[in-house]
Structures are given as structure tokens and as C-alpha cells.
Amino acid sequence: MLRFLARRLALAVPTLILASMIIFALQQLLPGDVATALTGEERDPQVIAFIRQKYHLDAPLPVRYAYWAGGVLRGDLGESIRLQKPVSELIVEKLPVTLELACLAMLVALAIGVPMGVLSAVKRGQAADTIANGVALWGLSVPNFWLGILLILLFSVQLGWLPASGYVSPFESLSDNLAAMVMPAFVLGNAIAAVMMRHTRAAMLGVLGSDYVRTARAKGVSPMRVTLRHALPNAAIPIITLGALEFGQLLSGAVLTEQVFSVPGFGKLMVDAVFNRDFATVQGVVICTAATYIALNLAADLLSAAVNPKLRRA
């Protein structure tokens, strides 16, 4: 198990380096740089030249990458030129918001998607299956921002139950925090629940048709126990893998949903940074997201190993 962990962590290093190089190179494709973004309409060539020199923007690409990578290795993600703040500070500021939103959304997705998937597999071809599939199709097809706006219209404007936007730290007021988060979390979770339901259903159908499920039934095991104890754990691996991927997606920021509900998370930070050519921030967020992705995938593999004893020796 420890060797497995060590090997996976060692593999993470080249992945991160590659990700940082790619994002570094891709940004060069964007027209303009932070100097043109900061000087705005006037574009004073002297000012631009000064800024470029100050932040080494005139150095060749590999040199700039080396500057940046050297900083990262020392734990310095650089500075947001636009906000005049260290990138690490920005990340520490926004990450908890995104993390909370992602966790809540994931909770919604799991709470809806998995039971619905199990139910529709067990009741295959019956009314419950049809309804669950319909709900999933709806969840997949509805755009997040639109659902968000409708929810705001209903619960904030019409009923006045929930705040339309804004964010309150849970350390200030947990109830206000949850009231602000419930709608964005539902919107994000709803879309993932649909995918989750489909995957759970497919995995469960495969497992329910297996010989060992027949063995369990031949032993006189009750249908409930057959489903939850014999089938679901064996169907869990694709669900865990998918969950980790979706969670990673959520952590990189839900741009539109954060915009609709004015949640100050990663998504908003990232979009602002790209528009301002604030490359240090973009890189910082990307590297942070990539690291989280890798950590989540590793966690998913460990969880799968816990569920499937055969994987433990791999």
C-alpha cells in the first residue's frame, strides 16, 4: 500500500510540471500582456516598456518559465500584478469558498444521483426507472446559469426565503452562509447528480446480473441486502472515479454559477485574471487546481482499493 502511494506521488511530479508548462505556453497565445492590460486605453509605450522590464516580460519564454518555476519551488507563486497581492494570498482567500461550494454540491450530487441510480437499476424497465431517467435527462439538459436564475426568481424574488446573492463566511454566521450556498450548491450538484445517476445505474445493472448476486439470492439474502451489501460496493468503483473527476472540476471553479450567485470563488478569480492578463494568478490557480485533481484521483484510487480487495496488491 505504501509503495503504491509513493509511486503515485512520484508520478504526480511530472504531471504538475507538464501542466505548468502547458498553461505557461498557452497564455502566450493570448493577444497582449499585463502591461497592455494595465495601461488601458492610453498605451504609453514608455510605461509599457517599464512594466515589461520590471516583471521580466521581455525575457524569452524559457527564462520567464524558469523565473516562475524557481519561485514555485521556494513556495512563492508570484504576485498578482493587477491586484498587487501575492498569488498565494489570493488562493488562500478564495479556496475555502470554492471548497465549501464544491463539497456541498458533491453532497447534493451523491444524495440524489446514487440512490436514484440504484433505484432505477433495481426497478429496471418499471415506472421508477423511467422517471429517474427523465429526471436525469432534465438535469443534464438544463443549463446551470438558467436554473440558477429561475431558482433566484422563485426562492429570492417570489418567496423571499433565500438571499439572491452574496457570500457570508461560515465563521460569521453558519445559517447565513448555508442560506447563501444552498442554491448554487443545488444548481451545481443537480447537473452532477444526473451524470452520477447514469453511471450508478449502468454499474449496478452490470453487477446485478452477475453470478455472485445470483449466489446471494440463492442463499436467501433479502433483496435490500443483496442490493446494498452485495451489489453496490462492487458497483462503487466507477462512481468513485467519476465523483473524484467531478469534484476536481468543481474545485477549479464554477465560473457561470459563481457569477450568477456572486460567489467569490476560484471561478471568478480565474476569469478576472485571464481578462487582465494576470498570468501569475492564472498559473497559480491552475497549478493549485492540477495538484488538487491529482490528489483527488489518488484519493479515488485509495478508496477503490478499500472497496475492491483485489486492487490492494496492485
Partner: peptide, 8 residues
């Protein structure tokens, strides 16, 4: 091979 539950 397949008639026993691999996860139990």
C-alpha cells in the same frame, strides 16, 4: 470465479 462476491 464469478459466483463468489469478490468484495466480501
Amino acid at each position: 470465479m464469478s459466483s463468489l462476491n469478490p468484495g466480501m
